[in-house]
Amino acid sequence: MLRFAGKRLLWALVTLWAIITITFIIMHSIPGDPFAREGKMPPAVYENLTKHYHLDEPLYVQYFLYIKSLLVFDFGPSLKSSTLTVNDYIEKGFPVSLHLGIQALLLAVVLGLIFGVIAALNRNKWPDYLSMVLAIIGISVPSFILATFLINYFAVEWGLLPAATWSSWSHTILPTISLAMLPMAYIARLMRSSMLEVLNQDFMLTAKSKGLNKGFIIMKYGVRNAILPVVSVLGILAANLVTGSFVVESIFGIPGVGELFVDGIFNRDYPVILGSTIFYSMVLIFLIFIVDIAYFWIDPRIKVAGEEQ
């Protein structure tokens, strides 16, 4: 177990290093001086930047100092303000983004699993078609279009829910749906095919030949086995949620890291872009690490393989 975790941790660190290096390369391939923006920049801001990125040092020194600052979670100053750093913005935005992300992930996983199981159990009957139509819609409609439609109907036309901002729980409903739709559709499809495969396995017949209750068989023999591939893609889904949150947060005007990132892109605020990219990557790599470890516990077959190695 420890060996396995250690291996995965090492892997996570390598990935993180690759991302940091790529962002460093990107920052230095931006044509011209990345901080020389059109318009005026307060000299204090420029000074902060030069100091943080050590622009006067040779490139390799810059690289090591850059990694060093990231290792202590220092994402540097921002173009927007001479006193607030990217860290300050992320600290403010992350709880909001986390709230939205967890809510959307829960919705996506719960509904996705339910739809997938119902579809598989009623293969080629109307519940199957209904779930799969929903899933195909979820995969076919980009989130910014879905979000706009939801705002247009639920907020503007029917006035049922607030259209934007993040002040009460009812404000979170539309963004959560917009964000959850794609991963939900993905989980539903994956769960359906995985469940269909499991339903064809010999042990399902064994279970039936024991005279067990149908519900028990479906849960303990069916879902318990069919859920494994779904768990293994949770990391990818989390990445999906992150990129989805850029769009959803900026459409709904939610003050999270996603909006910060999108604003950064629009304003060519490179420190913010790089800072939030690396922050996102850290979050994701951490999540994937957790998912790997969780999978290790959930699938008993891996445990032995891991120990034998």
């Binding site: 390598v14 990935t15 690759a18 991302i19 790529i22 962002t23 990107i26 391939s29 931006i30 044509p31 990445a239 999906n240 992150v242 990129t243 850029f246 892109i265 060519r268 490179y270 872009i273 990219t277 996102y280 990557s281 994701l284 790599i285 994937i288």
Partner: peptide
């Protein structure tokens, strides 16, 4: 594998910036 663990859309966005 390392390249693949960077979220696809994030990578595309970063590339489009430069």
């Amino acid at each position: 594998e390392v390249l693949f663990s960077i979220p696809y859309l994030l990578m595309v966005i970063l590339m489009m910036i430069i």
